[in-house]
Structure formats: C-alpha cells, structure tokens
Write a protein that binds this DNA or RNA. Structure first.
Length: 221
DNA sequence: AAAACGGGGGC
DNA sequence: GCCCCAGTTTT
C-alpha cells in the first residue's frame, strides 16, 4: 500500500531560505542580492541565452559597468558590446538584440522598461521567462519565472510533474502560495546553481534531501 | 568527439 | 508541439 507523499512547500522554502546566504551563485548574487534595475535584469537575461550561469555573471558585470541604461547602451557599437560580453558566445545575435531593445525602450517607453507581461513579451527576444524575471526581480511584482532551474527542481522534488516550462508555470500558478512567488525563483536558481545541479547534484550536502524523492535516483554526489 | 549550457521564435 | 538557432566549456 503506497501512500502519496505530499511535499511541505512551506518547509521546503524555509529550509532553502535559511541556507541561501551560504551560497554564492553568480547570477543571483548579481541580480537579486544587489537589487538590480529592470534594465539590468533584462540585459543579464539576454546574455544568459545558452550560456552557463558563471559566464553570464562575469559578462553581465562587465557590460553593465559600461552601460547600465538604454541611453548608455545605444552609445556602444556592436563590436564594443561583443568585446565586453566575451565569452558568452552568440555575439552578433546578442549584441544586435541588446541594441535593438535599448533603442526600442528609448523610442517607445522613454528609456524605461515596461512593467507588464504583455509589453515585455512584445520586445524582440523577450519571451515568458525573461518577462517574468524582469517583473519579479526588477520590479518585485509577484510573478513566477520558470527558468531551467525552477523547472528542473520543481519537478525533481515532485511538487509538479510537467514536461515543459510553460506547463510548470501554469501548475505553479495554481499550487504555489502567492506569498512565495517573489522569492521562489531566486531561491531555486541559487539552489540549482550551487547544489541541485542538472547532472551530478550534491545530494550529500543538500538541506532538503529528506523531502526529495529523487535521492538515489540521479547520479549524485 | 560529444555533450552540456537555455530560451525565443517560426511554423 | 516540433524544429531551428550556433559559441564556448566540460566531460
């Protein structure tokens, strides 16, 4: 007779929260702990496309030191941007997108980043994930940003069971208490970067291992 | 040499 | 939903 195990999401979030400050994940350290502006969140996310989090963090710092507003961004040439963001890869695409979005923000929004999902996803190169991240980290508006970490870990701990990120977002919208929405993303990204990695997670050092049904299933350390 | 890193957009 | 995209690092 098998009993359905229910994840105690409050205890899960609280446990991650109490361990959070011991970790030093590059993206979250840069975006969340530093109180980044919406534009900085947007730029960091555009750099992160198919790029490891550590690399993105270093490149984002360097680029944003040179240009932390749309005004200063459009003053850079594509070549200057490409040099600043090395080695994230995909330079022409990323430089073009950064410039296009910066110009568009200046033309349409007076240099401000809009704060609705509809306006954000209308920007070229901005989809649901990026838009939700700007909302929740840039504006601190309750939103659920399902990036690869949130998707992987939400499923790994058995809180949701979905194949794709959009489904996970819908499921979390229904299940996850609203009081966790703002914190959930950054906690899970930090957790996912440092311990609950895609392959070979460090289960032996995991503070929520007792709540995880995947212990002993994945190859873990 | 192959896999991992991730998300947007077009159809 | 499925496919395309295309550079660097890790295994």
């Amino acid at each position: 007779m098998t009993r359905k195990r229910i994840l105690d999401i409050d205890r899960f979030v609280a446990t991650i929260e109490s361990n959070y400050r011991q970790w030093d994940p590059p993206i979250i350290t840069f975006i969340a702990n530093r109180g980044a502006t919406p534009f900085e969140v947007l730029v960091s996310t555009l750099l992160s496309l198919r790029t490891k989090d550590e690399v993105t963090g270093v490149a984002a710092r360097r680029l944003l030191r040179a240009a932390r507003t749309p005004e200063t961004m459009v003053a850079l040439t594509p070549q200057e941007i490409e040099r600043l963001i090395y080695p994230v890869g995909f330079y022409p695409t990323k430089a073009r997108r950064l410039l296009a979005i910066s110009r568009l923000l200046l033309d349409r929004y007076g240099g401000k980043v809009p704060d609705t999902l509809e306006e954000l996803t209308a920007l070229p190169g901005v989809g649901r994930k990026t838009a939700n991240l700007v909302l929740v980290e840039g504006f601190k508006i309750p939103a659920i940003c399902v990036d690869t970490h949130v998707h992987r870990i939400s499923n790994r701990i058995g809180y949701v069971k979905t194949k794709n990120a959009d489904k996970t977002e819908l499921a979390l919208r229904k299940k996850l208490p609203r009081r966790h929405w703002v914190r959930y993303n950054e906690l899970l990204v930090a957790f996912g970067q440092v311990l609950c990695r895609p392959v070979s997670p460090f289960c032996s050092r995991c503070p929520v291992a007792d709540m995880c049904p995947q212990i002993g299933v994945d190859r873990h350390r």
